[in-house]
């Protein structure tokens, strides 16, 4: 015989849920973590130093001294112009002698095949097919700072350089895929990254005058 069970009083359930809610409100934080990603170079040994020999015109040297002054290619510069300077350096629209060299993707493809680097070759082949043989820049931005440089300035400079890369990537993506870089699929992003690689080198620590 089934026994009648009295209904459980659920009025305290709300209190319990409120308690949990308040607990979570207190212990968690809303802000999402975000920032600038950077890959550090492996610690220097002789092999690396040999590989580091790059033609001088392909390096854009950005110095920040202890007074947070900026020098681009040993000339005093304003931080707000850095983005444009970097874009000019990387894209080198007038093929100037003193700015970064560019290589056709098809040339790179042949090099990759010659080296037996099949993965890179496959990706480059796709680039040539899809984007009509774009020019790949050899440019590297080298960022050097003093120990006394302010972190805020350093990040502002980093940010402006990354902004230059993002603008170039967005432009390239628009021309070839009709969308900005962030909206492309992973594979397409990979191709764009191959054509416009993010080459920022954070040099060994040293004092900057």
């Amino acid at each position: 015989m089934a026994r009648q069970v009295g209904e459980i009083n659920a009025s305290s359930q709300a209190d319990i849920a409120f308690l949990l809610l308040i607990f979570f409100l207190v212990t968690t934080s809303m802000n999402v973590d975000q920032g600038l990603y950077r890959q550090l170079p492996p610690i220097n040994n002789e092999e690396n130093q040999k590989a580091d020999k790059v033609n001088e015109r392909n390096i854009l040297i950005v110095l920040i001294n202890k007074d947070n002054q900026l020098a681009v290619e040993s000339e005093l510069a304003d931080i707000n112009d850095l983005t444009e300077t970097t874009i000019e350096f990387l894209t080198n629209p007038r093929n100037r002698e003193d700015l970064a060299e560019k290589v056709k993707a098809s040339v790179r493809l042949e090099e990759a095949i010659a080296k037996g680097n099949t993965e890179e070759a496959a990706a480059l082949k796709k680039v040539v097919e899809l984007c009509g043989d774009p020019e790949i820049t050899k440019g590297i931005v080298s960022l050097q700072n003093d120990r006394g440089t302010n972190y805020e300035t350093y990040i502002a400079v980093q940010n402006n350089i990354v902004q230059a890369y993002n603008i170039i990537r967005d432009k390239f993506s628009m021309e070839n895929f009709g969308k900005v870089y962030d909206e492309l699929s992973n594979d397409e992003q990979k191709l764009v990254r191959l054509v416009i690689p993010l080459n920022i080198s954070e040099a060994e620590p040293r004092s900057v005058k």
Partner: peptide
Amino acid sequence: VTDIKQELRKVQALKINYST
């Protein structure tokens, strides 16, 4: 910051993020 970056490089911790 540079000192810490150097320490990270020594232990091959190369993927970093400057939180902003």
